[in-house]
């Protein structure tokens, strides 16, 4: 049975290299090699399918960002797209044959070498914290510190109360973002492990298909919520009313 906590494969000093961290490194390698390949084939006149596909996806995501936040689309887009790509690849990486199944036995329990890193709260909480910090940093950079603080602090008691609620909602955002992603992917893994242990062939296929969709949807949900949050906070406080 899967545990919530990732399994440590080895240590580098005091740093525990877990199977989820190895999965992250695998996805990193995939992304970096993809970026290197794309930068080599980029051409003003596109002459290959990959460039066309990549331009199409980037244009769609940039257009979506522009439609929600035209004034800060250039600043928000890298976060939105990166969250989506990174989470999507990590989610789908857990469906690669061997991930979650290849490993070694320790005390009669299978320790997989790789495990989808979004089924590790360290990863999802890390992403949610980055989302929070980046959103507020962008807000301060775009609307200025005075306007940013006026959203949370006011001499008007009602506005002050709303401001406190906003602070609480920002904290809950981190919890909801991290636990939603973690819960969905972890639950998916549990379902896949359970089904695969009962039926080895054919029956797990619909669940694999479902996990592909869940992986895509969760990546979209996380990145879209971040993007919307950034769009709201990069609009001046008075303008948003």
């Amino acid at each position: 049975m899967l545990s919530f906590a990732p399994e440590t494969i080895f240590h580098i000093g005091s740093f525990p290299v877990t199977n989820t961290f190895l999965d992250t490194l695998l996805v990193d390698a995939l992304i970096i090699s993809g970026v290197i390949y794309v930068s080599k084939i980029m051409n003003l006149v596109p002459n290959n399918l990959l460039q066309n596909l990549l331009e199409y996806i980037i244009e769609i995501f940039y257009g979506l960002t522009e439609s929600i936040s035209e004034h800060a689309a250039g600043k928000i887009f890298p976060y939105f797209m990166s969250f989506f790509l990174f989470i999507l690849l990590i989610n789908w990486s857990s469906l690669i044959p061997g991930v979650g199944t290849l490993g070694f036995y320790e005390k009669g329990k299978l320790i997989p070498l790789f495990r989808g890193s979004t089924s590790d709260l360290n990863m999802t909480l890390g992403l949610a914290l980055i989302s929070l910090v980046a959103t507020h940093a962008l807000s301060i950079k775009t609307v200025g510190i005075k306007n940013y603080l006026s959203r949370y602090f006011s001499f008007n008691p009602i506005n002050l109360y709303v401001g406190i609620l906003e602070i609480v909602s920002e904290i809950t955002k981190v919890v909801s973002l991290s636990f939603r992603l973690f819960g969905n992917i972890f639950a998916g893994e549990v379902v896949l492990v359970t089904i695969s242990s009962i039926f080895a062939f054919v029956v797990p296929l619909p669940f694999l298909m479902l996990e592909i969709i869940v992986g895509l949807v969760q990546a979209l949900v996380f990145s879209m919520l971040t993007m919307v949050g950034m769009a709201i906070l990069t609009t001046a406080h008075n303008e948003s009313h």
Partner: peptide
């Protein structure tokens, strides 16, 4: 949940 500040930091830096 296996929360580890070092691992959390590593994942943040990685992203």
């Amino acid at each position: 949940f296996g929360l580890n500040p070092v691992l959390l930091g590593a994942q943040i830096v990685n992203f």
